[in-house]
Computed example of a mutant assay.
Amino acid sequence: MKNLENRFKTRLKAGEQQIGIWNSLQGNATAEVLATCGFDWMLIDTEHSAMDVIDVLPALQSAAAYPDCAAVVRPASNDPVLIKRLLDLGAQTLLIPYVQSVAEAEAAVSAMSYPPKGIRGVAGLTRASRFGTIDNYATEAEKELCLLVQVETRASLDALEHIASVDGVDGVFIGPADLAASLGHPGNPNHPEVVAAIEGAFARLKKIGVPAGILTLNRDFARRCIEIGTTFTAVGVDLGLLIDAANDLSKEFAQN
């Protein structure tokens, strides 16, 4: 059996726009429903949610039936053990949070790669290798793995070009909430200084030819980000959409 193509990575390299949705609610049903909604990618989040590594497996299995929606997984930290486990579960694209330096980006690359390039532990019977049926998985796996690193502090912005240029980094995601806090505006990602820093980061990434991404719930700003250069753009969070819809429905009937 041939290794599975990572369509998210293929489209990322081609510069195609991919619109995403955030999956923060546990349960395979949530992931499956989101995968049917027409998004190009879905972020399965284990950093800022109650989901853990074990919850990622049913989410990946549910999403697999809908290949037009690529599954991206965010581990809780830039931890080689977490990265190894998620890769073994079959995640092909990882978004690594809080990468602040070249050394941390290089550590993520190493965790994604088998020796001699990296330190990923080798196991034969994993979902990633289709339980040992993918031909030459150990030597072919990396071609279809995609590494996105999250830049979300003043320090990481200062090192942006260096982080983005690390061999093995496929794209850079700007994290508005943490960046706002780091710049002295906690809870206010729409502050002009934060917006200017984000837009400046996109321009810098575009200049060196590295794909840029973001999550923003501000739809006007999402369109602005797409206009100036993001190519993997998340525009909603499942929990937020549920809250908004439930509040709207409650208010509608409370008026009657």
Rank of each mutant, 00 (worst) to 15 (best):
D88R: 00
L89M: 15
L89I: 07
A91E: 00
A91Y: 00
Q92R: 15
Q92A: 12
T93K: 07
T93Y: 01
L95H: 02
I96A: 02
P97D: 04
Y98N: 14
V99G: 03
V102W: 01
A103S: 10
E104K: 07
E106C: 04
E106I: 00
E106G: 05
V109N: 04
V109W: 05
Y114R: 05
P115G: 03
P115E: 02
P115N: 02
P115A: 13
P115H: 02
K117D: 03
G118A: 02
R120F: 05
R120G: 04
G121D: 07
G121E: 09
V122T: 11
V122L: 15
V122P: 00
A123V: 14
G124S: 14
A128Q: 06
A128C: 02
S129G: 09
S129F: 10
R130A: 08
R130D: 12
F131C: 03
G132T: 03
G132Y: 03
T133D: 10
I134L: 13
I134E: 11
D135N: 12
D135G: 03
N136V: 04
A138R: 13
A138S: 13
E142A: 13
L145Q: 14
L145I: 12
C146T: 06
L147Y: 09
L147C: 12
L148S: 05
V149E: 08
V149A: 03
V149T: 07
Q150H: 12
V151T: 05
V151A: 10
E152Y: 13
E152G: 02
E152M: 11
T153D: 08
R154K: 15
R154H: 14
A155R: 15
S156L: 13
S156K: 09
A159F: 06
L160M: 08
E161V: 04
E161K: 15
I163D: 11
I163S: 10
A164G: 01
A164E: 08
S165I: 04
V166G: 07
D167Q: 11
D167I: 05
V169S: 11
V169C: 12
V172L: 05
V172R: 12
G175H: 06
G175P: 01
G175A: 09
D178S: 10
D178K: 09
A180S: 13
A181N: 12
A181Q: 14
A181D: 11
S182D: 07
S182L: 15
L183Q: 11
L183E: 12
